[in-house]
Structure formats: C-alpha cells, structure tokens
C-alpha cells in the first residue's frame, strides 16, 4: 500500500475471531499471514484452534434456544437488517473482495451486491418456508395433523474456499433463516471478508452466538467439529474433497445432518436446498376433534 503524502503512521488491523458476539484472539495465540491474489501481504489473521472451535460451539448452543424461539417474522427483520448494514459498507466489502479474490473492482462490486441481495432473499423466506415445506396432513378422522419445520440446532459450516463473501453469505444465511445457529470456518486463504462480515453481524441485531466465525486451517479444525457431539449438522461445502470422506464418517458416527462438499455457482438462484437442509419436520396430532 503506498504511503500517503503526509507522514501518517499506518493503522494496521489485527484480525480476530468472532465468537459469542465478541472478537477474541485465538486461545492458541497463533496467527497466519493472509496474502492477496498476487501473493503480497494483506494482513495477519487469527489461526483458530480446536479449543476456539469448542468455545464457538458452546456459544452457538447457548444462543440456539433464543434464536430458534424468535418468531420467523422477527428473524426475517434481523436478516434484512444485516443487508441494510452491509449496504452501508459496500465500498469496504468491495475492496476486501477485490483483494481477497483478485477480481476487478467491477466484479467485486457486483459480488457484494449479490451477497446483500442474498440476505434479503433469505430474509423473505423466514416466514414463508413453513407454508412450503410444512403441511396440514389429511387423516382419517376429525382431527388436525400438522407437519411443521423446526431448526436443526447447531450447524458447523465449512465456508467455500474461493468465494469469500458471496459464497459465505450463501451458506450462512440459510442456517439463520431456518432458526439454527452456526460455527463457520472461514475460507482458509481468503478469510478477511468473513471477519468484516463478523463486524457487520455484531452490529446488526443478530444475537450474540448465533453466528461464530473462526479463521484458520480448515483441515485442522473440521474433524473436531465433525466429531463434536453437540453439533447437530455440518455443511462440508468448502471442505477438502479428500478429507470429506473421513469427515462424513465421523459425522455419521454421531448422526449429524451432512451437506456434501462442493461449491455450486453462487451467482445462480440458490433454491431451497440449503434452507431445508437445516430443518427437521415435526408432525403433531391435534388432540381434540372439532
């Protein structure tokens, strides 16, 4: 970065984790250098450890009852608010995306816009998904029998490695829209847009602990989350395809919901796949006839 003409000191930012609504350093004290698309130094990011992952799961579990219990309408408002706050920081996000992904300013700007639109898209779905995947089931008697979607719980998300912002939003927003909470492993080589997103989430009505963002080595942390008994689901999206087999095996051992590794085209219509992946269906008989 060129020095300004006045002899002002560079205010360099030390990036940290986002856990339980706070920005702690890694418990391990480790950091790693983040470089841009051309290999020049951008910043140091915290290199999270398994204990940071453990703490993040505790925070996500603690936040779950409140977030799952919020009305779908309220969750929609909160998600829309995230879009609002991101809109106010478009330039910053565009610069982060351009640096992280090595794309032109134009492409970066359009990526940020799509990411903001994605929050709005999922915000709209929060109070409509029940009508689409729920049902009033026909039964042989004068009773109601209802199937309603319920959030799965704590979801571990291995964020996409290449699409540092749009991909990240596209995997985190559906978790939140359904009422689950999450622990996200940000893109290993491109973590900075994720950290800035953490700063947005911290100031946009999303309750503390609903989203927890860890930066660091995905391959190091993913097994701890896959094996963790208090994580209900895992999105292997940005995981290493070779490691994914082992992760799926670990996840099966404790009956996690699993979305398999692989990154779709994030600019296309996301559909309901990721939204319904983190929903369970509860079917109840209404005990009284009419």
């Amino acid at each position: 970065m060129p020095r300004p003409a006045t002899s002002r000191l560079d205010v360099r930012k030390t990036y940290k984790l986002y856990v339980g609504g706070a920005f702690p350093r890694s418990e391990s004290g480790r950091t790693y250098a983040v470089v841009d698309g051309k290999g020049s130094f951008l910043a140091n990011a915290a290199q999270g450890s398994r204990k940071d992952a453990r703490d993040a799961v505790v925070a996500a579990r603690k936040a779950f009852p409140g977030w799952a219990g919020a009305t779908a309408y309220n969750r929609g408002q909160v998600l829309y608010r995230v879009a609002e706050v991101m809109e106010g920081r478009r330039e910053q996000f565009a610069a982060e995306v351009a640096a992280a992904e090595g794309v032109t300013a134009r492409v970066a700007q359009s990526t940020v816009d799509t990411a903001i639109d994605r929050w709005v898209w999922y915000a709209g779905w929060t109070d409509k998904i029940a009508q689409v995947v729920g049902n009033a089931n026909p039964v042989a008697g004068p009773y109601f029998n209802l199937s309603v979607p319920e959030p799965t719980g704590v979801v571990a998300v291995l964020a996409p490695q290449r699409s540092a912002l749009l991909g990240l939003v596209s995997v985190v927003a559906p978790v939140l829209a359904g009422g689950s909470t999450c622990v996200v492993l940000a893109s290993e080589d491109r973590p900075l847009p994720a950290v800035v997103l953490g700063e947005v989430l911290a100031t946009s009505d999303v309750p503390a602990g609903v989203v927890n963002i860890l930066t660091g080595r995905t391959a190091e942390l993913a097994p701890w989350l896959a094996e963790h008994r208090d994580v209900n689901a895992i999105d292997l999206c940005g995981g290493d395809p070779e490691q994914a087999v082992e992760l799926e095996r670990s996840a099966a051992d404790n009956i996690k919901r699993v979305l398999r590794a692989g990154e779709p085209d994030w600019t296309s219509d996301p559909g309901l796949l990721r939204l319904t992946a983190w929903l369970e269906t509860k079917t109840v008989w209404h005990p009284m006839g009419v």
């Binding site: 579990r61 701890w224 963790h228 208090d230 670990s250």
Partner: peptide, 9 residues
C-alpha cells in the same frame, strides 16, 4: 473418547 461431548450424552 478423544472427541467433544455434549449435553445429550
């Protein structure tokens, strides 16, 4: 066991 447990257990 080597892995983190949870309140379900």
């Amino acid at each position: 066991t080597g892995h983190y447990s949870g309140p379900d257990y």
